[in-house]
Design a protein around this nucleic acid. Structure first.
Lengths: 153, 153
DNA sequence: TATTGTTATACTCTATAACTATA
DNA sequence: TATAGTTATAGAGTATAACAATA
């Protein structure tokens, strides 16, 4: 007889965390998008609103912080500006820069988005034992943090 | 003082399970894709291989079971057939149907894919307390099952 | 007329590269 | 010449709808 394996390996692909996270992640985004649509928001806008709620930021700094291409930031800001959620302010000292500020409307949208996210959480885990949710959140937060997926607090 | 909330709500979008699952799911797929590439496989092929390992299936039944469009099934099967992983056999009783069978090569690829998935799991959770993994797998499996994301065992 | 599988097309999301205006 | 932001283009992935063969 050989050594017992130290880690529990998934015998099938569908038992792996990689597969489960992929599938659940896809469903989570889709449902989140549905709940955000009435607000005029898309999932990718949320990290921007949350980040700007902390402090104004230039577009390139923003792009780097949330790990998306600068061209995507332009697009997202066009949309958020159309909603009145953010303002682009030309930097008088360096006229190439646009400093992006959140508005009161933007803060309100951020709070509504958090409520929408909570509703999705309930949908995803409604059938689960209630006690598990906090623990799951903790574990996933730790994993996401380690992988550098979370904006700085 | 009001009632205490029964569920723990995430105060910020990035604390929500919806957000965490979306992000982790995206990373999981990307890394899984990287590990599968040398095998000529993509993540979406895996559920097909696993399903066919159980029993042969017509294409439409296959599409319905894994919840993808029939046109996507055509594409996936073209790729899997090119790898020698599956065979399309014309049904002699109903010549419209193609019955899809897995080959020995396909079974072998399925096993390799499971190993690749295990490697990704280790990457995603390497920094976590080891004990958490089994529990996380259990919780995610339950959630995925409830949402109908898992092929029948 | 309905069903199986296929093809053609379009849509979403993102990334890459070329461009402008400032520095 | 380098940088901030923008625009144009292309890629991956999926879904929708029109189509051919068979029932």
């Amino acid at each position: 007889m050989g050594h017992a394996s130290i880690v529990a390996m998934a015998p099938q692909v569908t038992d792996s965390l990689a597969f489960l996270l992929s599938k659940l992640g896809q469903v989570a985004s889709e449902r989140f998008a549905v709940h955000l649509a009435p607000l005029g928001l898309r999932p990718r806008h949320c990290a921007v609103l949350q980040l700007l709620a902390g402090a104004p930021l230039g577009q390139l700094a923003l792009a780097k912080t949330i790990s998306v291409a600068p061209s995507v930031v332009v697009d997202m800001l066009d949309e958020l500006e159309a909603l009145g959620a953010v303002r682009r302010v030309r930097d008088t000292a360096d006229r190439r820069r646009q400093v992006v500020e959140i508005t009161d409307k933007g803060r309100e949208l951020g709070r509504s988005a958090a409520l929408a996210a909570a509703q999705v959480d309930a949908e995803l885990l409604g059938a689960l034992e209630p006690g598990r949710e906090g623990e799951l959140r903790k574990t996933l937060t730790a994993a996401a943090g380690t992988l550098g997926l979370l904006p700085p607090r």
